[in-house]
Write a protein that binds this DNA or RNA. Structure first.
Lengths: 253, 253
DNA sequence: CCGAGCGATTAACACACGTTATAGACGTGC
DNA sequence: GCACGTCTATAACGTGTGTTAATCGCTCGG
């Protein structure tokens, strides 16, 4: 029963991942949910590999991803790129909005995405009118920071294979909470070059590490389909603990 | 005139770095300043290398550093440690507080520190009663996140020497805004082993990189006294841009 | 149907960085 | 004044990862 209960383990993508996410952190009132629904109307479809915001931009409002995967990244003068976060459906950026702030990094789609822009005005209304929303948004900011710290640990102290395993674990858990995983895998739209820029590795070495994970029978990766053949092993390799995502009882088994 | 004007370039440590920091982000009302002063009373002196919060703790409130330098860090099972942030006077942690949240990392002093604990109750009063404080706190959270992203770029894509140079640049600018730098240097309480755990390097290689910076005449480091002999060069090596700190016109020259 | 381009793969080689070990310098407590 | 621990420094050696480059397979546009 529990396995098929759509409220605990959705069979497909959930309709309003953002509302579900916030509601998971802080129980929202019905009015708050309605307001959020209203605010996330008018999402646009945007193709893959498109910049949503660039370094130096002064966004009027924030961004909400409702479908697809996007990323935050920074560029160096020599052309090197560091991806600092992945945004999955339900994730936002710059909702903890502050006027007159210049972007110090950029945001781009990885796969095609559905993106809603939320203006500063509606954001202020949301926060002012719905304390539960304000509290939940503060929680998302905390989780964002905790995730950045975990990535720092990942890049700073783990080996190449461990880093990639950790990323795969994190994405599995995060996508699972929005109903975007199959039982044993998910769609991974990043290229090996993206993974390299995420993990602080060269794309050649990412390939080597993937081969190693494959040879050990831990994963299978064909095209954009990642299958996790041995979840326990993957978690062990990555030394993955989901506590930093602060999912509470929504955490995956 | 401008150089000696204590409001723009304080000659010594400023008395309430936290208030100055928030006021720099969002102009605070006099009542807000008074309330913040009240809240930060009763700071305790704590020795070096003492844990303030441990992973798994459920802090009742937040922490404010008024003197000394502390750090956030995470441990791995194999004993490896990753330092994810340094807290200088005026910095806080977990003020964007959320009830029933378990720490997913730890906080410890590096040098001896003066530390104020701010309870959830006074924090709620501050935020509810002073919108400017709430807004400024949101800004600090944004800067924290931007700093984490910059660190990710640092560790993920820069060489050993560049990473260390970047850290030295960042600390110089941050300490300067709270009046804790000399004209050409500051006190660096971290050991080389700390720097290693910060930059994702071995302590041996940190030493090698420091020697290299010394040989080039960029820095001098005797004991805990860091002297920057060639600031322009150091910035170039680190490819340092202070924009992610969002200091506006408080940024160093 | 063909060429162009991008992504994945693999090989060969180079080097930045890690590991282990030892010794010296410094402070600190007894 | 001595023993001790901690931090810095340096050497020798090993290796994980980067670099360059070539090949192969797709997909997509014409």
């Amino acid at each position: 029963m529990a396995l098929t209960d759509p409220t605990t383990r959705p069979a497909g993508p959930i309709v309003h991942p953002f509302i579900a996410k916030l509601d998971g952190f802080v129980a929202l009132t019905e009015e708050a949910k309605a307001a959020l629904k209203q605010a996330s109307l008018g999402a646009h479809l945007i193709g893959p590999r498109i910049d949503l915001l660039r370094e130096g931009d002064m966004p009027e409002g924030g961004i909400l991803i409702t479908e697809g995967i996007a990323c935050r990244y920074k560029h160096r003068a020599n052309g090197a790129r560091q991806i600092t976060a992945y945004l999955v459906p339900g994730d936002t950026c710059d909702l903890e909005f502050h006027p007159f702030r210049e972007m110090d990094d950029a945001i781009a789609t990885v796969s095609a995405c559905r993106v809603a822009r939320i203006s500063a005005a509606t954001l202020n209304e949301l926060v002012a009118g719905h304390p539960t929303v304000a509290q939940a948004l503060r929680m998302t900011a905390l989780v964002d920071k905790a995730t950045l710290r975990e990535w720092l640990l990942n890049i700073g102290s783990r080996s190449a294979m461990e880093r990639i395993a950790h990323l795969f674990c994190e994405l599995f858990v995060r996508l699972q909470t929005v109903g975007l995983t199959a039982e044993d895998g998910y769609v991974l739209p990043m290229t090996q070059s993206d993974l390299a820029d995420t993990a602080g590795l060269s794309s050649v070495h990412v390939n080597r590490s993937l081969q190693s994970l494959r040879r050990q029978g831990v994963i299978d990766l064909k095209g954009k389909n990642l299958t996790i053949l041995d979840w326990a092993r993957l978690k062990t390799i990555a030394e993955f603990k989901a506590n930093y995502l602060h999912l509470g009882d929504r955490a995956a088994a």
